Simulated assay, not measured.
Amino acid sequence: MNDIPSYFIYGETPRPLDIGFLHVELISQRQHIHHGRAEPHMHEQMAQVTFWTEGGGTYLIEDKSLDFSAPAVSFVPSHVVHGFDVRANSDAVVISIADSVLPLVAASSLLPLDRPIMLRSERFDATWERMRALMLMAQEEYLTGQPGVEKIVLPLAATVLSFMARLSSQAAIMRSAGPLALASELKRLIDLHFREDRSVGDYVGMLGSTPHLVAKAATLVHGKGVKELINDRRLLEAKRLLLFTVRTVEDIAYETGFKDPAYFSRFFRQRTGEPPGVWRVGQHAGAPVGGNARP
């Protein structure tokens, strides 16, 4: 394929989302479309919480392939490539939340919502049963079609995400509203402009802030400097295109904002230990990666 597919809901052509868009369904409801295998794709305007209640298989998040057996749970923000290949009779509840609504969920969630995460049960913990019950409750409530469904489903989703934070040992992250808002907007701008090879000063200007405040917010919330965040985004896009398209390395270099393909190759090798072409071959030939992981 030449481009990574983008969908509204899986299998449906992208379209503008209504303000406050919310959708809940079972994976099995689209069995006639995916037949247990959802090819790598993304959603441009919404995030998804997915809780696997039955079965198992392999779940893809960017360049990580994660083997799992239910129960398992993931959070995938918009613009993140993901997919799955699962056994017969596997099922999951999926809550799709518009980016415009996500700040409301984030305000009640202990889990940072700016990056993907997948967790799998490795030992008995009552938290898994609680999450299962909450996700099934969200699905049942959504099916009622009653007014105010979002006022019930969104808090349920936020609670599941908070349980995920507990399980992933990230509940201790401290955030303040000012730096969080600034860092979130910085990340949004990087997603929009990373292909344009803009300077750190350009982003500071777009944010209407100061270099010190932007750097402080980036480090506090993301744990990295602004330049490193820009480079991470360019590297992520390069990996996506290497893994999921047949574009040449030279084409990918230009697509990710590099004017010199040779410099792109050095940039990529410094961060992965391999030239882009060698990395691509190794990823296509390699075994799935295990472990609860963030790409």
Results as ranks from 00 to 15, higher is better:
V160D: 05
A133V: 06
A285M: 13
Y59S: 07
K239N: 07
I190T: 10
V101G: 02
A262Q: 13
V278A: 12
D191R: 14
E228P: 00
L110V: 01
A285H: 14
S6V: 14
S184H: 08
G208S: 06
G20L: 11
Y142Q: 05
V49H: 05
V93I: 13
G201V: 02
L111Y: 09
S169Q: 13
K239P: 04
A98E: 11
Q31R: 05
G225V: 03
E250P: 04
R247V: 04
Q283Y: 13
E54G: 01
V221S: 00
L207Y: 05
D18R: 13
T272K: 08
A38G: 02
F84L: 08
A126W: 11
T159G: 01
M42K: 13
V80P: 00
S109A: 15
M137C: 05
A287I: 12
G277V: 01
H32V: 05
G83T: 07
A158G: 13
H222K: 03
F267N: 06
G286T: 12
T245K: 06
S109E: 07
H23W: 09
G20V: 09
H79Y: 06
L154R: 02
S121K: 14
L241A: 06
F68H: 09
P5W: 11
I190K: 07
A88T: 11
A72F: 02
R266N: 10
A138T: 04
Q170P: 00
A253F: 07
M118L: 15
I117A: 12
G57C: 00
P16G: 06
D85Q: 09
A177E: 15
V101D: 10
R166Q: 10
A218H: 03
I95L: 13
V249W: 01
N231W: 08
L242A: 04
A165N: 07
V80T: 15
D260G: 07
M164D: 01
E12K: 07
V249T: 14
G178K: 14
A38D: 04
S199E: 04
F268E: 08
V73K: 02
I33M: 07
W128N: 00
Y7L: 08
Y59E: 09
M135H: 01
M46Q: 14
S108R: 13
D91K: 07
Q146C: 03
V105Q: 09
L189K: 04
A177M: 12
M137S: 12
L220C: 04
A158P: 02
T58E: 10
A293R: 15
A107S: 13
D191W: 12
D232H: 10
H32P: 00
R266S: 13
D91F: 04
R123D: 06
G277Q: 08
P116C: 01
L161D: 06
R280E: 11
G20N: 07
P112K: 10
I27K: 01
R198S: 06
S121D: 00
A293C: 08
